[in-house]
Amino acid sequence: MRYITTVDGETFEVEINSESEITVGGRRLQVDFQSVAGQPVYSLILDGQSYEAYVYPSDQGLDVLLLGQLYHIAVEDERQRRLRQASGMQISPSGELHLKAPMPGLIVAIPVIEGQQVNQGQDLVILESMKMQNELKAPREGTVTRVRVKPGDSVEQNQILVTLV
């Protein structure tokens, strides 16, 4: 199986030949790849070099935390790449965007109202959790179409708070 893997803009071709061998950029390498205790931590022995990293699913693909550095990675097989190239454009910066609660907490204030135009980075919701007040900011500019919570509400993780268009 051949994968086209993009790491923060840099592209690698990784071909998985078998459980114990891969080809990267034309070079064949011996691999021994295991998850540590069934967790999203992986141990990799690559031609005798030992590495350990966290690998988490993320919005764009996978996040790899290796030696104190975070890498945002998109992995595509050839079929997926063709599909994407055929469809032309990537996700556009318009469309509905739901601001979700990143953690459970208490709504302290909502400094925006429905219909308001907001800029990227503007505060949308102030959420108190773990005794800290956290400002949740607009990930891009847009118009607030719905405010689904009010100050004093307790919210669960991933609950939709505000919708932008």
Binding site: Y3, T5, V7, E10, F12, V14, I16, I22, V24, V31, F33, Y42, L44, L46, Y51, A53, V55, G61, L62, V64, L66, Y71, I73, V75
Partner: peptide, 8 residues
Amino acid sequence: IAAIMASL
């Protein structure tokens, strides 16, 4: 290395 791990 990160790319190899993610691909695997």
